[in-house]
Write a protein that binds this DNA or RNA. Structure first.
Lengths: 274, 274
DNA sequence: CCGGCTACTTGATGTACATCAAGTGAATCC
DNA sequence: GGATTCACTTGATGTACATCAAGTAGCCGG
């Protein structure tokens, strides 16, 4: 059930992406790379994009690929801390993350905030807005980011013409439903150590699918945001990191995490017995 | 954020369904009505279905409606306790519930079960299967039920021809994503009383949208299933019911619940303060 | 370089809920 | 119709995590 957490490749239905040092560097580099301005002459085009294996269906012919190039209306940059969209905003477009890292969170009437997910390059944001034509959560950049803006009408038009794209859109939404099922399991049934192990493994796998190391990662979010996502307090997150560190499973240096014993982490994630 | 829990009409984007005594009776009747066999001559047809306002988009012309009549390949009955589908089954079709009540649940490797939702008439099941072409959870009937079988290929074909249907399918999936966001908030942030209040209010609203009373309901699931869904143990569910009962908020007689003070229930749901 | 801030860590104490255990009451089955 | 079972209730006790509190470390602006 938590396959999604246990095998990113299957869950995300991705081909293995070859290691791309330029991208890989971004994760280990403390500062986000300064995004060079896109010259007006250089048209935004999915067919050229090195992330297309993450965003787009595989098996498109060149004709269809050309049609798809029109899907992205424009790109948009969001500064760290900035909102890509906010709860209540009119929904008109989906977004594909090109660079950067986001969180989505819902806020209850009485002000409690719940982080519902963390999103990285190649992932699609905004699906929550479809049902009521307005966004249902806040999407906030955790580092300087750039997204592809895909007007939803346009996505739907193209979906009607390209069945492979139609299926792809459905899969993306279904994947999100299945992911959230996994999170529900995590929140309802797991103890703190299992939750944090699951969280780390999930991040590692998704980063690995993007060409990053399997044994190292930089957390883009605070302990509090991790805690919100995992249903625990920031102190407990901190203590659990310390515990893992004492047990020689990981090495924690601020937001830099090095995985020393991947198997033990998996064992904790699977363990119901203490 | 928990608007979904607080206002079923908005969340489900439904027109008010007029009270239908025949259906309403089903909720208060302990035994499910014996389903009369459909004569071969009586073709399954969405256009005749009294639940179409729940399943289908509004604003279809008669032409489109006729096309849609082909969407449901057949109907299928499921006995109480029976599986509509199981985790791992090949995914080929979606299901629309005609009568009865279901739960969906995921099971982790170590056997822990997590109820991810309860579904009632007019709701669509099976969306979890799209992403990987196999089902990702178990769908189990909590009472004798009948569903409309809608081959997904067929749904996609029709979606390409009928934009209103396409949008509708997208909304249904988005609604599920938003619902699960609400459950995440509930599991991560709320205390037992708030959870149960939210659960009851949500059930009441969905039942109300189907013509049932706002002040009475029959729980189709056990305390344990409620507990699993809400991330608490059955004893805690039971105690919380007793507490509500002592406080004069509800009257509990087995699975029959009568709401005595709807406002107080809402207040508990909203309260962060104790 | 210093002062203040934010993010994090670590310890002491409290508590909501889980767990364990022993009922009760309605439904089912020979 | 009495025995069995299952779902539920209620009480006593335990515990994982929250809360409260007091630090420390890295970072930013001046």
């Amino acid at each position: 059930m938590l396959n999604e957490l246990a095998d990113a490749r299957e869950a995300y239905n991705l081909p293995h992406v070859q290691q791309e040092p330029r991208i890989a560097a971004m994760q280990t580099e403390p500062k986000p790379i300064e995004q060079k301005q896109i010259e007006p002459s250089f048209k935004v085009a999915c067919s050229n994009c090195n992330l297309r294996e993450l965003c787009l269906p595989v098996g498109l012919n060149t004709d269809e690929m050309q049609q798809l190039d029109g899907m992205v209306a424009t790109r948009r940059k969001v500064k760290q801390g900035g909102h890509l969209y906010s709860s209540g905003d009119a929904f008109t477009t989906l977004y594909a993350i090109r660079t950067g890292f986001f969180k989505t969170c819902v806020v209850s009437e009485d002000g409690r905030e719940q982080v519902t997910g963390f999103q990285m390059a190649g992932e699609i944001m905004g699906l929550d807005g479809i049902v009521s034509d307005k966004h249902n959560c806040n999407a906030i950049a955790l580092e300087d980011a750039e997204v592809c803006v895909m007007p939803f009408n346009h996505v739907e038009d193209l979906s009607r013409q390209i069945p492979v794209l139609q299926r792809h859109v459905h899969k993306i939404m279904s994947r999100e439903i299945v992911r959230e099922n996994g999170v529900m399991m995590l929140l309802a049934n797991m103890r703190a150590e299992e939750r944090l192990a699951a969280f780390l493994l999930n991040l590692l796998q998704r980063l690995h699918a993007r060409g990053y190391s399997k044994s190292e990662l930089i957390l883009r979010m605070t302990r509090e945001e991790i805690g919100s996502y995992l249903g625990m307090k920031l102190e407990t997150v901190s203590r659990t990191f310390s515990k893992f560190s004492e047990d020689g499973i990981i090495e924690v240096k601020q937001k830099n995490i090095r995985i020393l014993d991947h198997d033990k982490l998996k064992a904790i994630f699977n363990a119901s017995t203490c």
